[in-house]
Design a protein around this nucleic acid. Structure first.
Lengths: 238, 238
DNA sequence: TAGTGGTCTAGACCACTAC
DNA sequence: TAGTGGTCTAGACCACTAA
């Protein structure tokens, strides 16, 4: 982390994770932290704001910042996260099988997306298994206009790692929807589903920092293996 | 909104919603906005940060803040939102039937919650229908330690409205999980489900500003009526 | 080069909490 | 009353984008 408040955020987050600041206790006050880190109070406040939105702390006026009891070590619904990262952070050992890489147009009707023209893309279909049990079928449509080619090796490893660390793409935001649907026979077979079992489909449109749309994603989950966890702050609707 | 940046946020958000700042165009620069609103740049930046996290704009270094094309007018997954509010903001006309209000202990095993003791609560069970089609079965366990009593009238209207505007509770954050499960016969009957149909269960633990746990919630959705939409910003996992 | 957003500072005043 | 977080200011320097 180059910027100060990022460094302070990570330092505090680590200290919370390792119980140096135990759950239920107060962090030092903002003025104290400013002195501790040799910085101004506003900079401390930016770090604390980050801890707040990520569920590490709760700020209470006139009192201080309490460390929360976060059991956030599951699948986050919010945030754009790739399977490889999830896998690493969850310390699960799993396999990815690449079923298909080929040129296709994005099936826009699936994504409820209005476009005057066809969007050429690389279609990547991958089956994720844990202990040989199929868990998720991932279908990615990566726009040719942004990423012309994708190799089998990259698909077997991590698309996001390739996009960010090799191509230097800066992935910024996404819109996601979660629905429950009847699977096709093909999908039911791949996920080893019984008759009458539905699947959970998470579809997303992913954008770069400069607002370029670069990828459509369809994640098809076995219903019994689907578990999303979210930390949410109260928001008023206007 | 009392604070300046909140007022500026709402003003800009409204102007974006009403296309005074059209999708794809740039907002005035931060320095210009500071002059426009007669405030400092940091205050403008707080308002813009809010617009950013809510998906109204994307900031691009060296260029400016672009207005995004948000189709966010669906069910948000993130954020704690009550049914009444959703209902109003979606302009749907629906009915809520109160099936049950009684004293119960929270079924902690359902919520994966560790506690040494039983938690006395008011159990409220409500069925939400649209055009006489059942959509959601909501089960609330409101802790007696925070809210001693709940009337039938309040349950038929809105618990959150009651909590926030009558009792002055400040609801702050929640942890949520989404799973797919087999319904009990009773639930299947209430939601008019066929055989073999699963339900989507959204469970949450809701907290007040002072970190007091005050409510457990179980929302049981018809799978075909379940559609959650989320706007997510890219987050690195450490 | 001029304009943009990103970061940071050192102060100020306020409302709230606790004693 | 002293300490806390919430807000706001008026500056500063930087990295990036575009012409």
């Amino acid at each position: 982390m180059r910027n100060k408040f990022g460094a302070i955020y990570h330092d505090l987050a680590n200290k919370i994770i390792h119980h140096i600041y135990p759950v239920g206790t107060y962090l030092p006050s903002e003025t104290q932290l400013a002195e501790l880190y040799g910085t101004s109070r506003e900079t401390i406040r930016k770090a604390l704001a980050e801890l707040l939105t990520n569920g590490f702390i709760q700020k209470i006026r006139g009192k201080g910042s309490v460390v929360l009891n976060l059991q956030r070590f599951n699948f986050p619904v919010s945030g754009i996260t790739s399977y490889k990262e999830l896998n690493n952070s969850l310390h699960m050992h799993s396999k990815t099988e690449v079923l298909c890489i080929e040129d296709q147009h994005v099936p826009l009707e699936n994504f409820d997306y209005q476009s005057g023209q066809n969007l050429p893309a690389t279609f990547v279909e991958r089956l994720r298994t844990i202990d040989d049990n199929p868990i998720v079928l991932d279908r990615d449509y990566v726009l040719k206009s942004v990423v012309p080619n994708i190799s089998h090796a990259v698909a077997a490893d991590s698309l996001y790692n390739y996009f960010e660390n090799k191509l230097g793409l800066i992935i910024s935001y996404a819109t996601k929807t979660i629905t429950v649907e009847h699977p096709s026979k093909e999908v039911a077979r791949l996920l080893a589903l019984g008759d009458h079992q539905d699947v959970v489909v998470v579809r997303s449109q992913n954008y770069l920092e400069d607002t370029t749309l670069f990828e459509f994603t369809e994640s098809i989950h076995r219903p019994d293996k689907f578990n999303f966890v979210d930390f949410a702050r109260r928001q008023k609707i206007n």
